[in-house]
Simulated assay, not measured.
Amino acid sequence: MADDKRGREKQARDAERRQQERDIATELDRGDESEPPVEAAALDDVEAALESVQFPATGADVVAAIGDRTIESDGERYAIEALVPETDREAFDSPAAVQVAVRRPTVASAMKRIVESIETRQDAEFSWSQRKAYETTFRALGSIDADDDDEGIAVIRDWIVDRVRETGDLPSSRAVRREAAEFCRTNGYQVRADEWLGI
């Protein structure tokens, strides 16, 4: 491969795609851990419905095909259209990628709002690594036992969307972690220095 801009961009895209595949495999392997609130068996209906979708598929394609399907988590039902961004900007390589995306409904709905908030901004970049950092921050907020309503996720989601409206850009993953840590400290939730939010 030539050592020019196009060659370097292809290498970067290939590296990002390989990382996405590793992340999806890791998420699927962790399906038996207590963290994902949606059990793998609850996604069987979604998996069957995704057989009619041609992959790779955009979020808009997935919502058009199975948006009315629902999954249940902790006694609540969530429509797929409430969890997957209805946009061409969001792409899924496989049915497994969709299942991983919807496995944590509160995180998925927050990410949907964020992705849709940048839909009209052509120059806004949302890299895989930044997305993973946002999701990790949301998961850390979701694991706060004292915050049963996932208030932290909603607060940080809204803070990000407001920053996009005000500046036109997504805040850095470090800024998001810092804001989440500040939310925790302000509300009396302990954040240890060796944790993700311990920034």
Rank of each mutant, 00 (worst) to 15 (best):
V38F: 15
E39G: 12
E39L: 10
A40E: 11
A41M: 05
A41F: 02
A42V: 09
A42N: 15
A42I: 05
L43K: 13
L43C: 04
L43S: 05
D44A: 14
D45E: 15
D45W: 07
V46S: 02
E47G: 15
A48T: 12
A48H: 12
A48R: 13
A49C: 07
A49V: 03
L50D: 08
E51A: 12
E51L: 06
E51G: 14
S52A: 15
Q54D: 15
F55L: 10
F55A: 14
F55C: 13
F55T: 07
P56Y: 00
P56H: 07
P56V: 03
A57C: 08
A57K: 05
A57Q: 08
A57M: 07
A57S: 10
A57D: 09
T58S: 14
G59K: 04
G59P: 00
G59Q: 01
G59Y: 06
A60G: 07
D61Q: 11
D61K: 03
V62P: 01
V63R: 03
A64V: 01
A64E: 11
A65P: 03
I66E: 08
I66K: 14
I66A: 13
I66R: 10
G67V: 09
D68Q: 12
D68L: 09
D68T: 08
R69Y: 06
R69I: 00
T70W: 00
T70Q: 11
I71E: 09
I71G: 03
E72V: 05
E72S: 13
S73N: 01
D74V: 01
D74A: 08
D74E: 15
G75C: 07
G75T: 04
E76K: 10
E76F: 00
R77T: 11
Y78H: 08
Y78L: 01
A79V: 03
A79T: 05
A79W: 03
I80R: 06
I80T: 05
E81P: 02
E81K: 14
E81R: 15
A82N: 10
A82D: 14
V84Y: 02
V84C: 02
V84M: 02
V84T: 03
P85S: 09
E86G: 06
T87C: 05
D88W: 00
R89K: 13
R89G: 08
R89T: 10
E90V: 00
E90L: 02
E90R: 07
A91G: 14
F92H: 04
S94V: 09
S94M: 10
P95S: 12
P95V: 12
A96G: 14
A96T: 09
A96S: 15
A97H: 14
A97S: 15
Q99R: 13
V100I: 11
V100N: 13
V100E: 13
V100M: 12
A101R: 06
A101M: 03
R103A: 00
R103W: 12
R104W: 13
R104Q: 08
R104D: 10
R104K: 12
P105W: 01
P105I: 03
P105K: 01
T106Y: 02
T106I: 01
T106V: 01
T106F: 04
